[in-house]
Design a protein around this nucleic acid. Structure first.
Lengths: 386, 386
DNA sequence: ACGATCCGTTAAACTGTTTAAGCAGTTAAC
DNA sequence: GTTAACTGCTTAAACAGTTTAACGGATCGT
C-alpha cells in the first residue's frame, strides 16, 4: 500500500463542503467589489499610489520615474533626488505584477513536493525547504509551494505554473522513476532542478547528498563493530538514492563474505510504520539479526520501536543505524546513530544553481554533497555471547 | 538564549559569497535576454500565445475571448465553441500576471513563519502548513512562504507583500506578544489571520486549538493517576496559548491542594534542548517529581531523554505528557501520551476564513477547535512506594 | 557657422488581461 | 407608445509598469 495523498481521508461533512464550494475561486466571480475607476479607497488598506502620480508630482514623465527606480545612469543626480523625495513622500511602492508583466520575470520559484499526507511536517523535506527558502530570500526570490497530487499532474498544472507565468523555475523534491512527468520540464525547456534525487539516464539537473559514501560509512562502522547479520530496511526502490544504498550494502556484504540475499532486505517505504513492518519481516526471517541499517531516520525510528515491542534491546541485542540525521533523532532513546545529510546545504545550493539556470546558464548541473556519520547510542559492538 | 535565526550560523566561505552576490536579483539586471518584440522563441520553452492571436485566428475581439474564458453567459454557444477550438489548437494559456494586474486579485496567500532555524522542519508548523496548503489548493489559491526575520520586518517587507500586490492575504504562525508588528496588518486593513495563536486584547482574527481544554484533560488524567508532584515545562510565556496552559495547570493544582509555585515550572522554549534543560532545573529543585507536563511534544521528548540520562525510568519513575501529537511521538520509546491538537484542521479552517475575509466578509473571526488526549505508554499510575 | 556627439528627458509603444459602455434590433412591461 | 431590458458582440479604456526611439539643447570639433 502506498502512503499517497488520499482525498477521502481528509474530507469534511457535506454542509461544510457546500460552504467550501461557494468559496472556490471561479473566474467569473470577482468577489471583491471594485470599480473600474480604480484608485479610490479600497477594502485592503490605504489609497494606492501609482507611478503616474509620482511622475505628476515630480513634474517628470513616468519613464523618468522608472529609470530612477532602476538606477539608470542616464538620470541626473538632481532628478534622482527630486523623484526619490516624492516617492518617499507619497509612500509609493512599485507594483510587482506590472513589473513582472513587462519584464517577463516573476522572481518566484515553485517547490514541488510529493503528495504524502505529512510531506510538510516531514523534517526531511522541511530541512531541504529551509535551505531553499533562506537562499531564495537572499537572492530576491519568492517561494511558492505545490503538491504533486495526481490530478495536479493530470491537469498539467505543473506545466501551467510556467506557461501562465506563475514562476520562473521549479524544484522537484521526492521524485523517483515512476514520476515520468519530470521529463515534461526539460522537454519544454523550463528551468527545473531535482533536489536530493536524480535520474542517471535522464540528463536533468540535480543536487544530492552523497548516499553512496554515506552508506559506505554505515557499512564500515557496522562491520568494524563485528556485526555479521546485517539487515537493510530500505525505502522505495524506484528512488535512485535508495538503489545506491542497496548497491553499497550488497557490495560490502559480499566483500565481507556475508549473507545478504533478498531475505535480508525489506521495503520500509520511508515511513515509521513501514519501518516497523519491515522490521517484523526481517525478524521473522532472521531472528538472529544483530544490526539494522535503515535508509532513513523515520524507518529507523519505526524499527527501533518495534524492536523494543518485540523484547529486543537497542543497542545491546540489536544495533540500529539511520540515515538523514533529522533533529529529533538526537533525543530519542537510545539516541540514533545516523548519517548526516547536509539537507539544508543541498537546499541552498539547489537554489543558487536554479537561479543561475534561470539567468541563462546552460551547462548541466550535477552536484553531490559530502555526508558524514554521527555516532550515537543506538549502535554497539557485537556482544561476545553471540 | 533565544533560538532565533542566526545569519552567521549559516554563512558560507567568501568565495561562495561572491558568487552569490552576483546572483542577487538587481532591478537593473534583467538577466534574461529578451527583445521588445516579445513573442519569439524564448529560452523557456514554446512560443507564447497571447489572447490577441487567439482573437485574430477566431476572427473575434479579445474581449470576446476573455468572456469565453470566463464563461460569460452573454457569449453564444457557437462563438464559445469556435473560440475554444482555436484556444485548444494554439495551446493558449491566459497569463496570470496580466489577469491579476487587471483584476486586482493575485489569488496568492502568504504564510509567515517565525525565523526559527528549523521552522520548516518542525512537524508542528508543517502540520498547520499542510492544512493551509491543501485547502488553499482546493480554493484555487497559491501559497507563498515567508520567514519573519528581523530585517524582513525592519524593511517592512511584510507590508510590501500587500502593497506591491504579491498577495491577497496572510497567515501568521508562531506569533506572540513580542511581535508588535502584527498590528500593522489590521491597521492597514490587510486581510490577516493568526494561526494557532491569539491576542485576546487585539481584536485580530484567529483560529486556534483549544489549549485550555487540552490542559484540563492532561491535569485530569495525571491527578486521576494519583500524581501529586506535577511539574510544568512550558513554552515562551509571551504566547497566549502557553499562558492558557499555565493558568489551567495552576488552577487545577491549587484546586487539588497541591504545590505549584514557580519552582514547579520551567521555560523549555518549545525545543528539545530547552525541554532537557528545563527538566534539569526541575529535577534539581524537586527530585521527587512524579509527573512532567510539557507544553509541546518536542519539549516532552527532550525531557524524556534527559530523564533517562539521569537514571529515571519513564513511566515507572516519572510520567511524561506532551502536547501537539506530532506524528513521531507514537514511535518513540516509550510512546508519548499527549494532547492531540487538530493542527491540520486548524490550517484548513484558517484558510477558509481568510479567503472569506478576502472576499469581503467583515465580521471578526475567532474559532477554537476541540482537542483530545491520546493515552500512550509514557504515563502510568503513581507507584505505591511513593 | 555647421554638423556631430552627448545628455537628460519625453512620448509612445509594449507587456496581456478585464470590463464599462455602446451598437442596433427585439421584446416585454407599464 | 414610450421605456426598459434584453440579444451577442466590439471598442476602448483601464490595470501599472518597462523600454526605446526621438527630441531639444548644450557642447565640441572642424
Amino acid at each position: 500500500m502506498e502512503v499517497l495523498y488520499n482525498p477521502d481521508a481528509m474530507d469534511m461533512p457535506d454542509s461544510q463542503a457546500d460552504m467550501l464550494n461557494e468559496l472556490v475561486a471561479k473566474p467569473d466571480t470577482p468577489g471583491q467589489v471594485r470599480g473600474r475607476q480604480g484608485n479610490g479607497s479600497r477594502a485592503g488598506g490605504a489609497r494606492r499610489v501609482s507611478m503616474r502620480e509620482v511622475a505628476q508630482q515630480a513634474s517628470v514623465s513616468v519613464a523618468t520615474v522608472s529609470m530612477v527606480l532602476n538606477d539608470n545612469p542616464r538620470i541626473s543626480k538632481a532628478t534622482q533626488i527630486k523623484v526619490r523625495r516624492i516617492i518617499d513622500k507619497l509612500g509609493y511602492r512599485p507594483n510587482r505584477l506590472a513589473q513582472s508583466l513587462s519584464s517577463q520575470y516573476t522572481r518566484v520559484l515553485a517547490v514541488l513536493l510529493p503528495p504524502l499526507r505529512h510531506a510538510f511536517s516531514d523534517p526531511y523535506f522541511g530541512e531541504l525547504l529551509s535551505g531553499i527558502c533562506d537562499r531564495a530570500d537572499k537572492l530576491g526570490h519568492k517561494i511558492m509551494l505545490e503538491s504533486a497530487k495526481p490530478d495536479f499532474l493530470r491537469e498539467r498544472k505543473h506545466m501551467e505554473l510556467f506557461e501562465r507565468r506563475f514562476v520562473d523555475g521549479m524544484f522537484c523534491l521526492g521524485v523517483n522513476d515512476r514520476h515520468h512527468w519530470v521529463r515534461d520540464f526539460s522537454d519544454a525547456g523550463f528551468p527545473m532542478l531535482c533536489v536530493n534525487n536524480y535520474f542517471p539516464e535522464l540528463n536533468l539537473d540535480y543536487v544530492v547528498a552523497d548516499y553512496r559514501s554515506g552508506a559506505e560509512q554505515v557499512m564500515n562502522v557496522l562491520l568494524q563493530l563485528g556485526h555479521k547479520q546485517i539487515a537493510l530496511i530500505n525505502g522505495a526502490p524506484e528512488a535512485q538514492t535508495a538503489r545506491d544504498v542497496l548497491e553499497v550494502y550488497t557490495a560490502r556484504m559480499q566483500e565481507a563474505g556475508l549473507e545478504c540475499d533478498d531475505g535480508w532486505t525489506a521495503d520500509g517505504r520511508f515511513t515509521e510504520e513501514g519501518g516497523a513492518a519491515a522490521l517484523n519481516e526481517i525478524l521473522d526471517r532472521h531472528p538472529d539479526v544483530s544490526a539494522i541499517f535503515a535508509g532513513n531516520d523515520k524507518m529507523a525510528l519505526g524499527a527501533m520501536h518495534q524492536l523494543v515491542e518485540r523484547g529486543r534491546n537497542v543497542p545491546d541485542d540489536v544495533s540500529v543505524v539511520g540515515f538523514d540525521d533529522i533533529q529529533q533523532m538526537a533525543f530519542v532513546n537510545p539516541s540514533l546513530t545516523t548519517v548526516h545529510l547536509p539537507l539544508y546545504e543541498v537546499g541552498t545550493r539547489a537554489c543558487e544553481l536554479l537561479v543561475q539556470r534561470i539567468r541563462g546558464k546552460t551547462e548541466n548541473v550535477a552536484e553531490r554533497l559530502a555526508t558524514h556519520l554521527v555516532l550515537r547510542d543506538s549502535t554497539s559492538i557485537v556482544p561476545g555471547r553471540r
